[in-house]
Nucleic acid binder design. Sequence first.
DNA 1: TGACTTCGGAAACGATCGTTTCCTATAGTG
DNA 2: CACTATAGGAAACGATCGTTTCCGAAGTCA
Lengths: 207, 207
Amino acid sequence: MTGSTPSPDKECRTRGRPREFDVDEALDKAIDVFRERGYHGTSISDLSAAMELTAGSIYKAFKDKHAVFSAALERHITLRKAAMQAAIQTEKSGRDKVCKVLTTYATQCHGIEGRLGCLVVGSAIELAIFDEGIARQVNDSLMRNETMLAGLIKDGQADGSIAADIDGPVTARSMLCVLQGMRVLGKTGRAHEELLAVVDVAMKLLG
Amino acid sequence: MTGSTPSPDKECRTRGRPREFDVDEALDKAIDVFRERGYHGTSISDLSAAMELTAGSIYKAFKDKHAVFSAALERHITLRKAAMQAAIQTEKSGRDKVCKVLTTYATQCHGIEGRLGCLVVGSAIELAIFDEGIARQVNDSLMRNETMLAGLIKDGQADGSIAADIDGPVTARSMLCVLQGMRVLGKTGRAHEELLAVVDVAMKLLG
DNA sequence: TGACTTCGGAAACGATCGTTTCCTATAGTG
DNA sequence: CACTATAGGAAACGATCGTTTCCGAAGTCA
């Protein structure tokens, strides 16, 4: 969506020499570089090395560095959302689904993966102030997570696994804070058990 | 401590022309620039303009850009800690003190101040992976907050304001996650009431 | 096949980066 | 008063930044 191709996107879909690499595969590599170095800390040289493309080829596929980042962020969000939905669909009750969300985050936030961090959080911290577009992508993602949690809590209250008297939307927002907080803590390295213990405590919020 | 003066720090305390500016005042201005732009996003020109010093003068007082950042981070941590201790000392019970900590964060994280963000979180996200020294400063600060919260909870359990059967250390860590999570959410802008509602919910963790 | 279009890649672009150098000004020390 | 040491500040440094240009290669379309 966001400038992944500078061309008009209309007519002549396959004219000229076809691209030799897969854009999504290249973006997957870009994601990891941006995750560990941030936007300003990543140079085109870094991207070129990681994506195994020359700078010229990158600029053929993307308008500029910002467009690469925006596309990488979008893909990161999409992949994470899909993985999360796959993870929770095997759980039965609303409570179990919420618990699965929390433990999945706890797992993502520990060790090496935790130090790499989350592109959404990184974007929020580094770019949200000055970059309106990125801020919207970040906020949309956070709000979607918040809404998802609120939905799961509602499901839990409907199926009886979660107390009916708790405030779903606010509890969802509080849990979102716990999740994003784990991302911050994971950046300096936390043991898996430390974060799983946090999950246990956070589950008390469901009554 | 961290290279605020390149000189040997011994003997001849005031030889040569004295410095015309106050280092801490200059650091206060640097803090705000780093908070909004991050480390890599801040140039020496930016610092020069904000600190009202020429690049040369900055390099007279600090070894390099990294030393400016490290000193700014250290001062930021010190100031925040002092402000927090001042805020909670007027509260009586352990529970009230914990609540005060949470509401203070909620206030800091909303509106314009929230968008500026926290230098500790920013450092964690942007630098902790590759910069061992900064990672230690960040981790020390986070651990200190975690320990402080655990101490307040223990106080509360002693004075009867907090249930005796909760796990203090783990609850403290969970609350730290809530706090850092509010910092992330505050980066894209949240209303004060939204965050205060999160505090209300988080207080339920005390039983 | 020939015209056309896009790609991959190397090289070059001006701009800005973080840092140093150089010179003068201003203090303390003997 | 000389001597020494540091501050302030302008200018210059090489390096690297993000981006563009150029050209031969590799496809599609008529």
